[in-house]
Design a protein around this nucleic acid. Structure first.
Length: 352
DNA sequence: AACGCGGGGAC
DNA sequence: GTCCCAGCGTT
Protein backbone atom coordinates (compact mmCIF):
# COMPACT_ATOMS: atom_id res chain seq x y z
CA UNK A 1 0.00 0.00 0.00
CA UNK A 2 1.45 3.37 -0.98
CA UNK A 3 1.61 6.49 1.14
CA UNK A 4 -1.51 8.09 -0.32
CA UNK A 5 -3.55 5.05 0.56
CA UNK A 6 -2.01 4.67 3.99
CA UNK A 7 -2.80 8.31 4.76
CA UNK A 8 -6.39 7.73 3.71
CA UNK A 9 -6.90 4.76 6.02
CA UNK A 10 -5.20 6.50 8.93
CA UNK A 11 -7.34 9.60 8.52
CA UNK A 12 -10.58 7.62 8.48
CA UNK A 13 -9.59 5.79 11.67
CA UNK A 14 -8.38 8.98 13.32
CA UNK A 15 -11.52 10.87 12.42
CA UNK A 16 -13.59 8.01 13.81
CA UNK A 17 -11.67 8.02 17.07
CA UNK A 18 -11.68 11.76 17.61
CA UNK A 19 -14.66 13.27 15.85
CA UNK A 20 -17.29 10.67 15.08
CA UNK A 21 -20.32 11.20 17.27
CA UNK A 22 -22.89 9.50 15.07
CA UNK A 23 -25.00 7.08 17.09
CA UNK A 24 -27.50 4.51 15.88
CA UNK A 25 -29.22 1.63 17.64
CA UNK A 26 -27.42 -1.06 15.62
CA UNK A 27 -23.97 0.52 15.88
CA UNK A 28 -21.54 -1.63 17.82
CA UNK A 29 -24.10 -4.41 17.68
CA UNK A 30 -22.56 -7.88 17.61
CA UNK A 31 -25.72 -9.95 17.21
CA UNK A 32 -25.63 -10.96 13.53
CA UNK A 33 -29.40 -11.21 13.33
CA UNK A 34 -29.80 -7.62 14.42
CA UNK A 35 -27.03 -6.46 12.12
CA UNK A 36 -28.56 -8.29 9.18
CA UNK A 37 -32.01 -6.86 9.92
CA UNK A 38 -30.66 -3.32 10.11
CA UNK A 39 -28.75 -3.72 6.86
CA UNK A 40 -31.76 -5.03 4.95
CA UNK A 41 -33.89 -2.15 6.21
CA UNK A 42 -31.19 0.40 5.36
CA UNK A 43 -30.66 -0.66 1.74
CA UNK A 44 -31.24 2.49 -0.33
CA UNK A 45 -32.87 3.99 2.74
CA UNK A 46 -31.73 6.85 4.90
CA UNK A 47 -30.86 6.06 8.49
CA UNK A 48 -33.56 8.35 9.88
CA UNK A 49 -36.21 6.65 7.77
CA UNK A 50 -35.19 3.10 8.64
CA UNK A 51 -34.58 3.68 12.33
CA UNK A 52 -38.18 3.37 13.62
CA UNK A 53 -38.78 0.33 11.41
CA UNK A 54 -35.72 -1.36 12.89
CA UNK A 55 -37.02 -0.73 16.40
CA UNK A 56 -40.44 -2.10 15.53
CA UNK A 57 -39.05 -5.22 13.86
CA UNK A 58 -36.70 -6.01 16.74
CA UNK A 59 -39.59 -5.47 19.13
CA UNK A 60 -41.89 -7.78 17.19
CA UNK A 61 -39.25 -10.35 16.25
CA UNK A 62 -36.40 -10.37 18.77
CA UNK A 63 -34.86 -13.49 17.25
CA UNK A 64 -34.55 -14.86 13.75
CA UNK A 65 -36.83 -17.81 14.49
CA UNK A 66 -39.60 -15.44 15.58
CA UNK A 67 -39.32 -13.69 12.24
CA UNK A 68 -39.15 -16.99 10.37
CA UNK A 69 -42.37 -18.12 12.02
CA UNK A 70 -44.27 -14.88 11.53
CA UNK A 71 -47.19 -14.79 9.07
CA UNK A 72 -46.19 -13.14 5.82
CA UNK A 73 -49.05 -10.63 5.89
CA UNK A 74 -48.08 -9.50 9.36
CA UNK A 75 -44.47 -8.90 8.30
CA UNK A 76 -45.53 -6.96 5.21
CA UNK A 77 -47.84 -4.83 7.28
CA UNK A 78 -44.91 -3.94 9.53
CA UNK A 79 -42.85 -3.09 6.43
CA UNK A 80 -45.64 -0.95 4.99
CA UNK A 81 -44.41 2.50 3.97
CA UNK A 82 -40.72 1.60 3.82
CA UNK A 83 -40.67 0.89 0.09
CA UNK A 84 -38.73 -1.59 -2.04
CA UNK A 85 -41.01 -4.37 -0.90
CA UNK A 86 -38.94 -7.16 -2.48
CA UNK A 87 -36.63 -6.62 0.46
CA UNK A 88 -39.39 -7.76 2.79
CA UNK A 89 -40.08 -10.89 0.77
CA UNK A 90 -36.39 -11.76 0.57
CA UNK A 91 -35.90 -11.01 4.25
CA UNK A 92 -38.55 -13.55 5.18
CA UNK A 93 -37.03 -16.14 2.85
CA UNK A 94 -33.61 -15.57 4.40
CA UNK A 95 -35.00 -15.80 7.94
CA UNK A 96 -36.65 -19.10 7.11
CA UNK A 97 -33.45 -20.40 5.57
CA UNK A 98 -31.44 -19.46 8.64
CA UNK A 99 -34.07 -21.04 10.83
CA UNK A 100 -34.18 -24.29 8.91
CA UNK A 101 -30.96 -24.88 7.00
CA UNK A 102 -28.76 -23.18 9.58
CA UNK A 103 -30.81 -24.34 12.58
CA UNK A 104 -31.31 -20.79 13.91
CA UNK A 105 -27.57 -20.14 13.94
CA UNK A 106 -26.73 -17.13 11.80
CA UNK A 107 -24.09 -18.21 9.22
CA UNK A 108 -20.56 -17.13 10.05
CA UNK A 109 -18.78 -17.15 6.69
CA UNK A 110 -18.92 -14.53 3.97
CA UNK A 111 -20.02 -17.07 1.37
CA UNK A 112 -22.87 -18.43 3.46
CA UNK A 113 -24.00 -14.91 4.38
CA UNK A 114 -23.87 -13.79 0.75
CA UNK A 115 -25.99 -16.78 -0.24
CA UNK A 116 -28.96 -15.44 1.73
CA UNK A 117 -31.80 -13.92 -0.28
CA UNK A 118 -31.60 -10.14 -0.41
CA UNK A 119 -27.97 -10.11 0.71
CA UNK A 120 -25.63 -8.77 -1.97
CA UNK A 121 -21.99 -7.77 -1.92
CA UNK A 122 -22.50 -4.73 0.32
CA UNK A 123 -24.72 -6.39 2.90
CA UNK A 124 -22.58 -9.52 3.09
CA UNK A 125 -19.46 -7.41 3.73
CA UNK A 126 -21.29 -5.35 6.33
CA UNK A 127 -22.53 -8.38 8.29
CA UNK A 128 -19.25 -10.28 7.94
CA UNK A 129 -17.18 -7.36 9.17
CA UNK A 130 -19.51 -5.99 11.87
CA UNK A 131 -20.46 -9.32 13.41
CA UNK A 132 -17.35 -11.39 12.79
CA UNK A 133 -14.67 -8.83 11.94
CA UNK A 134 -14.00 -10.62 8.65
CA UNK A 135 -11.82 -8.57 6.24
CA UNK A 136 -14.38 -7.54 3.62
CA UNK A 137 -14.70 -3.89 2.61
CA UNK A 138 -18.20 -2.43 2.36
CA UNK A 139 -19.01 -0.52 -0.80
CA UNK A 140 -22.11 1.62 -0.49
CA UNK A 141 -23.01 5.08 -1.72
CA UNK A 142 -20.91 6.68 1.01
CA UNK A 143 -17.81 4.67 0.24
CA UNK A 144 -18.07 5.26 -3.50
CA UNK A 145 -18.25 8.99 -2.87
CA UNK A 146 -15.38 9.17 -0.39
CA UNK A 147 -13.08 7.06 -2.55
CA UNK A 148 -14.02 8.80 -5.79
CA UNK A 149 -13.29 12.21 -4.31
CA UNK A 150 -10.11 11.44 -2.41
CA UNK A 151 -8.54 9.43 -5.22
CA UNK A 152 -10.08 11.60 -7.94
CA UNK A 153 -11.70 8.76 -9.83
CA UNK A 154 -14.21 9.66 -12.54
CA UNK A 155 -15.02 6.15 -13.68
CA UNK A 156 -18.82 5.88 -13.38
CA UNK A 157 -19.71 4.05 -10.16
CA UNK A 158 -22.68 2.38 -11.83
CA UNK A 159 -20.57 0.77 -14.56
CA UNK A 160 -19.08 -2.69 -14.41
CA UNK A 161 -15.56 -1.27 -14.69
CA UNK A 162 -16.33 1.17 -11.89
CA UNK A 163 -17.65 -1.49 -9.54
CA UNK A 164 -14.57 -3.59 -10.15
CA UNK A 165 -12.18 -0.67 -9.69
CA UNK A 166 -13.81 0.63 -6.51
CA UNK A 167 -14.14 -2.84 -5.01
CA UNK A 168 -10.42 -3.45 -5.46
CA UNK A 169 -9.53 -0.03 -4.08
CA UNK A 170 -11.87 -0.36 -1.10
CA UNK A 171 -10.30 -3.67 -0.13
CA UNK A 172 -6.81 -2.24 -0.58
CA UNK A 173 -7.36 0.56 1.91
CA UNK A 174 -9.21 -1.69 4.34
CA UNK A 175 -7.21 -2.33 7.52
CA UNK A 176 -7.69 -6.09 7.70
CA UNK A 177 -7.33 -6.32 11.45
CA UNK A 178 -10.12 -3.84 12.18
CA UNK A 179 -12.49 -4.29 9.28
CA UNK A 180 -15.66 -3.77 11.30
CA UNK A 181 -14.64 -0.52 12.95
CA UNK A 182 -13.17 0.85 9.72
CA UNK A 183 -16.22 -0.04 7.61
CA UNK A 184 -18.45 1.68 10.11
CA UNK A 185 -16.10 4.65 10.20
CA UNK A 186 -15.90 5.26 6.46
CA UNK A 187 -19.67 5.17 6.10
CA UNK A 188 -20.13 7.57 8.98
CA UNK A 189 -17.45 9.78 7.46
CA UNK A 190 -19.27 9.80 4.13
CA UNK A 191 -22.55 10.63 5.80
CA UNK A 192 -21.25 13.33 8.14
CA UNK A 193 -18.22 14.94 6.42
CA UNK A 194 -17.93 13.86 2.79
CA UNK A 195 -21.63 14.48 2.11
CA UNK A 196 -23.12 14.46 -1.41
CA UNK A 197 -23.87 18.17 -1.22
CA UNK A 198 -21.90 20.80 0.68
CA UNK A 199 -19.19 18.47 1.99
CA UNK A 200 -17.29 19.79 5.02
CA UNK A 201 -13.95 20.06 3.22
CA UNK A 202 -12.71 22.95 5.34
CA UNK A 203 -12.61 20.75 8.42
CA UNK A 204 -11.66 17.51 6.66
CA UNK A 205 -8.50 15.68 7.62
CA UNK A 206 -8.24 14.28 4.10
CA UNK A 207 -8.46 17.64 2.35
CA UNK A 208 -4.70 18.26 2.05
CA UNK A 209 -4.37 15.19 -0.12
CA UNK A 210 -7.89 14.93 -1.50
CA UNK A 211 -7.73 14.94 -5.31
CA UNK A 212 -11.24 16.34 -5.78
CA UNK A 213 -10.81 19.08 -3.18
CA UNK A 214 -7.43 20.17 -4.51
CA UNK A 215 -8.81 20.42 -8.03
CA UNK A 216 -12.21 21.81 -7.07
CA UNK A 217 -14.04 18.76 -8.36
CA UNK A 218 -16.01 17.67 -5.32
CA UNK A 219 -19.26 18.46 -7.07
CA UNK A 220 -18.25 16.44 -10.15
CA UNK A 221 -17.40 13.12 -8.54
CA UNK A 222 -18.54 10.48 -8.08
CA UNK A 223 -19.83 10.11 -11.63
CA UNK A 224 -23.01 8.26 -12.42
CA UNK A 225 -23.67 7.38 -16.03
CA UNK A 226 -27.26 6.26 -16.03
CA UNK A 227 -29.99 8.85 -15.98
CA UNK A 228 -33.47 7.80 -15.12
CA UNK A 229 -36.57 8.59 -17.12
CA UNK A 230 -39.78 9.04 -15.26
CA UNK A 231 -43.07 7.95 -16.73
CA UNK A 232 -46.51 9.13 -15.71
CA UNK A 233 -49.29 6.71 -14.87
CA UNK A 234 -52.94 7.27 -14.16
CA UNK A 235 -54.57 4.91 -11.68
CA UNK A 236 -58.29 4.84 -11.00
CA UNK A 237 -59.10 2.79 -7.95
CA UNK A 238 -62.66 1.58 -7.80
CA UNK A 239 -63.76 0.82 -4.26
CA UNK A 240 -66.38 -1.76 -5.13
CA UNK A 241 -68.50 -1.85 -1.98
CA UNK A 242 -70.99 -4.50 -1.09
CA UNK A 243 -72.75 -4.55 2.29
CA UNK A 244 -69.99 -2.56 3.99
CA UNK A 245 -67.24 -4.66 2.53
CA UNK A 246 -64.90 -3.92 -0.36
CA UNK A 247 -63.08 -5.90 -3.03
CA UNK A 248 -59.29 -6.01 -2.89
CA UNK A 249 -56.50 -8.12 -4.32
CA UNK A 250 -52.81 -8.71 -3.77
CA UNK A 251 -50.60 -7.27 -6.48
CA UNK A 252 -48.57 -9.83 -8.39
CA UNK A 253 -46.58 -9.78 -11.60
CA UNK A 254 -43.64 -7.58 -12.46
CA UNK A 255 -45.10 -4.17 -11.74
CA UNK A 256 -44.58 -1.94 -8.71
CA UNK A 257 -45.87 -2.77 -5.23
CA UNK A 258 -45.57 -6.53 -5.53
CA UNK A 259 -47.23 -8.38 -2.65
CA UNK A 260 -49.07 -5.28 -1.49
CA UNK A 261 -52.85 -5.03 -1.69
CA UNK A 262 -55.08 -2.70 -3.64
CA UNK A 263 -58.63 -2.02 -4.74
CA UNK A 264 -59.95 -2.73 -8.22
CA UNK A 265 -57.63 -0.88 -10.56
CA UNK A 266 -58.29 0.69 -13.92
CA UNK A 267 -55.25 2.31 -15.49
CA UNK A 268 -55.43 4.85 -18.30
CA UNK A 269 -52.69 6.41 -20.41
CA UNK A 270 -53.97 9.92 -19.66
CA UNK A 271 -56.09 11.64 -17.03
CA UNK A 272 -59.74 10.58 -17.15
CA UNK A 273 -62.93 11.86 -15.57
CA UNK A 274 -65.54 9.64 -13.96
CA UNK A 275 -67.69 9.99 -17.05
CA UNK A 276 -64.87 9.05 -19.41
CA UNK A 277 -63.90 6.17 -17.21
CA UNK A 278 -67.43 4.80 -17.20
CA UNK A 279 -67.30 4.66 -20.99
CA UNK A 280 -64.06 2.65 -21.01
CA UNK A 281 -64.00 -0.99 -21.98
CA UNK A 282 -62.58 -2.04 -18.64
CA UNK A 283 -65.32 -0.34 -16.72
CA UNK A 284 -68.05 -1.56 -19.04
CA UNK A 285 -66.98 -5.18 -18.86
CA UNK A 286 -66.90 -4.93 -15.10
CA UNK A 287 -70.10 -3.04 -14.36
CA UNK A 288 -71.71 -2.07 -17.65
CA UNK A 289 -74.78 -4.24 -17.29
CA UNK A 290 -75.25 -3.71 -13.57
CA UNK A 291 -77.07 -1.18 -11.43
CA UNK A 292 -74.20 0.47 -9.58
CA UNK A 293 -74.03 3.85 -7.88
CA UNK A 294 -71.01 6.16 -7.53
CA UNK A 295 -70.94 7.35 -3.92
CA UNK A 296 -67.86 9.51 -4.00
CA UNK A 297 -64.77 10.23 -6.07
CA UNK A 298 -61.56 12.09 -5.31
CA UNK A 299 -59.32 14.36 -7.34
CA UNK A 300 -55.97 13.02 -8.46
CA UNK A 301 -53.58 12.23 -5.65
CA UNK A 302 -49.92 12.30 -6.66
CA UNK A 303 -47.30 9.84 -5.55
CA UNK A 304 -43.71 10.29 -6.69
CA UNK A 305 -41.72 7.07 -7.09
CA UNK A 306 -38.15 6.84 -8.31
CA UNK A 307 -39.07 5.88 -11.86
CA UNK A 308 -42.70 6.88 -12.11
CA UNK A 309 -45.19 9.51 -11.11
CA UNK A 310 -48.48 7.97 -10.07
CA UNK A 311 -51.66 9.99 -10.29
CA UNK A 312 -54.37 8.08 -8.48
CA UNK A 313 -58.06 8.72 -8.04
CA UNK A 314 -60.35 6.83 -5.70
CA UNK A 315 -63.94 6.19 -6.70
CA UNK A 316 -66.36 4.62 -4.26
CA UNK A 317 -69.17 2.60 -5.78
CA UNK A 318 -72.02 0.63 -4.31
CA UNK A 319 -72.41 -2.54 -6.33
CA UNK A 320 -75.42 -4.86 -6.20
CA UNK A 321 -75.34 -8.35 -4.73
CA UNK A 322 -75.57 -9.69 -8.26
CA UNK A 323 -72.04 -8.40 -8.79
CA UNK A 324 -69.50 -11.19 -8.67
CA UNK A 325 -65.89 -10.88 -7.56
CA UNK A 326 -63.55 -10.23 -10.45
CA UNK A 327 -60.81 -12.82 -10.85
CA UNK A 328 -58.28 -12.67 -8.05
CA UNK A 329 -60.28 -10.27 -5.90
CA UNK A 330 -61.68 -10.96 -2.45
CA UNK A 331 -64.30 -9.18 -0.39
CA UNK A 332 -62.99 -7.89 2.93
CA UNK A 333 -64.21 -5.88 5.90
CA UNK A 334 -62.81 -2.61 7.19
CA UNK A 335 -61.14 -4.48 10.02
CA UNK A 336 -59.33 -6.80 7.64
CA UNK A 337 -57.91 -3.78 5.83
CA UNK A 338 -56.07 -2.86 9.02
CA UNK A 339 -54.07 -6.07 8.93
CA UNK A 340 -52.91 -5.99 5.32
CA UNK A 341 -50.17 -3.98 3.65
CA UNK A 342 -51.03 -1.29 1.09
CA UNK A 343 -49.00 1.20 -0.96
CA UNK A 344 -48.59 4.56 0.69
CA UNK A 345 -50.96 6.26 -1.71
CA UNK A 346 -53.75 3.94 -0.58
CA UNK A 347 -52.79 4.22 3.07
CA UNK A 348 -53.02 8.01 2.75
CA UNK A 349 -56.44 7.77 1.13
CA UNK A 350 -57.75 5.39 3.78
CA UNK A 351 -56.64 7.68 6.57
CA UNK A 352 -58.91 10.45 5.35
C1' DA B 1 -24.96 -4.68 -19.18
C1' DA B 2 -29.29 -2.60 -18.35
C1' DC B 3 -33.34 -2.15 -15.90
C1' DG B 4 -36.92 -1.85 -12.24
C1' DC B 5 -37.95 -1.21 -7.66
C1' DG B 6 -40.57 3.24 -2.82
C1' DG B 7 -40.50 6.67 -0.09
C1' DG B 8 -38.54 10.70 1.81
C1' DG B 9 -35.24 14.51 3.01
C1' DA B 10 -32.08 18.27 1.62
C1' DC B 11 -31.39 21.96 -1.38
C1' DG C 1 -37.44 20.01 -9.83
C1' DT C 2 -32.85 17.27 -8.74
C1' DC C 3 -30.06 14.24 -6.20
C1' DC C 4 -29.46 10.36 -3.52
C1' DC C 5 -30.02 7.33 0.44
C1' DA C 6 -25.73 1.33 4.77
C1' DG C 7 -28.43 -2.10 -2.94
C1' DC C 8 -30.51 -6.11 -4.91
C1' DG C 9 -32.55 -9.38 -8.17
C1' DT C 10 -34.02 -10.07 -12.77
C1' DT C 11 -33.70 -9.89 -17.64
Amino acid sequence: MNDTKRFFTDCILTWNRLHNSRTMPWKGEKNPYRIWLSEIILQQTRVEQGWPYYERFIGAYPTVDKLAQAPEEEVFRLWQGLGYYARCKNMLAAARMISSTHKNQFPKTYEEIAALKGVGAYTAAAIASFAFNLPHAVLDGNVYRVLARYFGIDTPIDSTAGKKLFTALANEVLPKDQAGAYNQAIMDFGAVVCKPQLPLCSSCLLAPRCEAFQKGLTDLVPVKSKKLKIKKRYFHYLLLEQKGRVFIRKRTGKDIWQNLHEFFLLETSAPATDAALQQSAGFQSLLGHLDYKIVDSTAEIKQQLTHQTIYARFIRLQVPLAFNAPDGYQLVTEKQLQELAFPKIIVDYLQR
